[in-house]
């Protein structure tokens, strides 16, 4: 597929097909999307590195640049947690911050020109097949959503006990005479949480990326007029989706702590 340079406007279907494929090895379930793993790890490393750097130069009296940013982010996340969650759980707030930062950075990769790496690779004689944005891959969004899902189950059982959590399945929301309906409702409710989390983020990023591909199919003189506004709009989508994922995680985990 990537043996030759694709000219978008000459073979639009092939161009888009090309961009929807991962740099993958293996077959079936046991294949690995190396591009997702690589860029996921790189953004994670960036967060860890910057976080460490800020901590190493932590100044109580005169916070500068990155530290101020990190402090306001931490305060922001902490306030969100305090607003919706009244118990004490040392995991939720840092988890929320991590989700926000990681999703934000991975989404932000969408703002890189779609053909940047492949263009550079082709010119260096290394044909690349890269799908850069990790949140554009269901594996990433589901990895986080499933983590959140298991945390919900874990804390529900931990706080309400196995019986308490079971009772919620049996008696809510319609009382004990509609037990089968209750079970179905509760199952749907719980399963909808991770699926909606994962699909919302994936869908947004996938659609946005697809529109960048479509814009790339246009003649070069038309691209800035559509690509520019779409990128600017995207600047809003990037943090918004990160924020939504974070806030829903916090809300879901708070609900898991609430006894009915």
């Amino acid at each position: 597929m990537s043996e030759h340079e694709l000219i978008p406007s000459q073979a639009p279907a092939a161009y888009i097909q090309h961009h929807l494929h991962h740099w993958a090895i293996g077959h079936g379930f046991w294949s690995l999307n190396l591009d997702t793993l690589l860029f996921g790890a790189l953004t994670a490393l960036l967060i860890a590195y910057v976080g460490r750097r800020v901590v190493a130069r932590l100044s109580s009296e005169a916070p500068t640049g990155l530290q101020s940013l990190m402090e306001s982010l931490i305060e922001f996340v902490d306030n969100q947690v305090k607003e919706s969650f009244h118990g004490h759980n040392p995991l939720i707030a840092p988890l929320g911050l991590t989700i926000f930062l990681w999703v934000f950075l991975m989404n932000a990769l969408d703002l890189l020109p779609v053909d940047l790496f492949e263009f550079a690779g082709n010119h260096l004689g290394v044909p690349l097949q890269l799908k850069v944005v990790p949140t554009n891959d269901l594996n990433t969004t589901f990895a986080m959503a499933i983590s959140v899902f298991f945390l919900i189950i874990y804390y529900s059982i931990k706080v309400k006990g196995f019986l308490g959590f079971g009772k919620e399945f049996l008696y809510l929301p319609f009382g004990k005479y509609l037990m089968p309906v209750n079970i179905v409702m509760k199952l749907v409710e719980e399963l909808a949480k991770p699926i909606s989390l994962a699909m919302r983020l994936f869908g947004n990023m996938y659609a946005a990326e697809l529109i960048f591909f479509l814009i790339a199919l246009l003649p070069f003189w038309a691209q800035p007029f559509l690509g520019g506004p779409w990128a600017i709009f995207h600047i809003m989508i990037v943090p918004l989706q990160a924020f939504i994922f974070m806030i829903l995680t916090i809300v879901y985990l708070s609900l898991a702590h609430e006894d009915h």
């Binding site: 046991w30 860890a48 991590t98 589901f142 990895a143 983590s147």
Partner: peptide, 21 residues
């Protein structure tokens, strides 16, 4: 489609959560 990548992303995610925390 979902494949083994999810395991890798899970590991990355939880390492990052642990580190940040």
């Amino acid at each position: 489609n979902v494949n083994a990548t999810i395991i890798g992303q899970l590991i990355t995610f939880w390492l990052l959560v642990w580190f940040v925390m």
